[in-house]
Nucleic acid binder design. Structure first.
Lengths: 234, 234
DNA sequence: GTTTTTAGTGTAGTATTGACACAATTTAAA
DNA sequence: TTTAAATTGTGTCAATACTACACTAAAAAC
């Protein structure tokens, strides 16, 4: 069966931008390629879409191979399709955006892929158009974290409001007023007080919250103002 | 040169969702296929990505073929990649989202492609997964028109505030308070009073505005609240 | 002229936000 | 044991933005 004899068949790649948060900095999971081409250079984790594989399944497969995690937050970000983007052969790359709880990942799998967590500031030069992909992903993170409750995906299941604030301060690289932030967050009704306190604090222990899973699902697509208005015009 | 001998080469299609506004309803430009496969059925305008063509150029080419327009608002929306989405052959489709000023298009080109403007409510069953693509595009329009000044792309260069309001009411299918809408719009500083009045009105003639091109560019990525808050939680 | 329809502006009450101060908790050092 | 330092939790007030309204002006039809 060949309905489209004149059309070109093209390689379809999948590349993954994987963000994590260590309590202080936003980090990217990048691999130092130990295979050709471009062996020894830094790149995003990726692979090719298989002939009979759904696109979304391909992304999950590649993310699982690197992190050992299956239930992580993934969004399709954008497809990069400049004709000359891969000098080896014409390749269209579908880029996925993933947020993971950094402590959950399988460090053996990461090590075997020659991958490392690298802060955004310290990221090396990347192959092909991967730097553009990362830039686009950072924009996406900044844009969406202000409107939708995705920040939680980067934190442990139980987290404190100060932790969440540090996360947002890292994303936007600005200081946020503690009191206004706390008021805004609690008013969303997304947070449930677990009754527990954080114990890795050297001073006053903060309350541990968890997400209200039901509300999180139903309200995910609402718009929120997680950030001060002044930030949103940036 | 074949660096990736084991990977599969796949057809890459481009499909375009083209929105227009006739002053009353949001419309979609759909084609009734006069070619195989699925001849006689309704679908989105599309085509295959050429071997040495940039992805974005492919979208512009396909949009130009159908509408005769080159400078239109286009965004990449999402790539659809279910393994079985095209029964003819495995095809990954990159979907583009376009907004056009409905009076500007080349009606001869549209006619020759067997295409028609169809209101959202009246749209027929579409081939493959095109209905999912349309649903996704409508979501995207609703989401983005509330936050960014994209509605203007559907109106003539000179437009009135009541026209703009009818557009937003059509997008969200809700009535909007005239006075609050006008105040909010003018406060963005995006509108320039042309000094002219609309003359296709049977009663009081409305002021014609145009976009402040400079402000439009620099402020495009700011968040705005074009819609009442009550709407945004839907 | 009078009526009908649409456009343009104003205002008062309410809710949200931003900028701030103060009290409470915990550990470590004095 | 007390004190200091750091961090968390809560409260208040003024400014701003939003909502729900009412009124005036312009244009054409009768």
């Amino acid at each position: 069966m060949n309905n489209y004899p004149q059309a070109s068949r093209i390689l379809v790649a999948i590349d993954c931008i994987i963000f994590g948060f260590d309590g202080k900095d936003i980090k990217l999971l990048l691999i130092k390629r130990n295979f050709e081409p471009e062996k020894g250079k830094w790149s995003l984790m990726g692979g090719f879409l298989n002939a009979e594989e759904d696109l979304a399944d391909g992304a999950v497969r590649i993310l699982y191979n690197l992190t050992g995690l299956k239930d992580i937050y993934v969004e399709q970000l954008e497809t990069f399709g400049k004709a000359d983007r891969d000098p080896g052969e014409r390749t269209v790359s579908v880029v996925f955006f993933a947020l993971i709880k950094i402590d959950d990942h399988d460090s053996e799998a990461v090590k075997s892929h020659n991958a490392s967590w690298i802060t955004l500031d310290a990221r090396p030069k990347l192959i092909f158009d991967h730097e553009k992909m990362v830039t686009r992903a950072i924009e996406h993170l900044k844009y969406n974290a202000a409107l939708h409750p995705i920040g939680f995906e980067l934190l442990p299941e139980r987290f404190t409001i100060p932790q969440l604030q540090k996360l947002y301060e890292a994303i936007y690289n600005i200081p946020i007023d503690r009191r206004n932030f706390s008021r805004k967050l609690l008013s969303t009704g997304l947070l449930i007080d677990t009754g527990q306190k954080n114990n890795n604090s050297a001073t006053k222990k903060a309350t541990l919250y968890k997400l209200d899973a039901e509300r999180y699902k139903t309200k995910f697509h609402s718009f929120w103002n997680f950030m001060p208005d002044s930030m949103k015009s940036q």
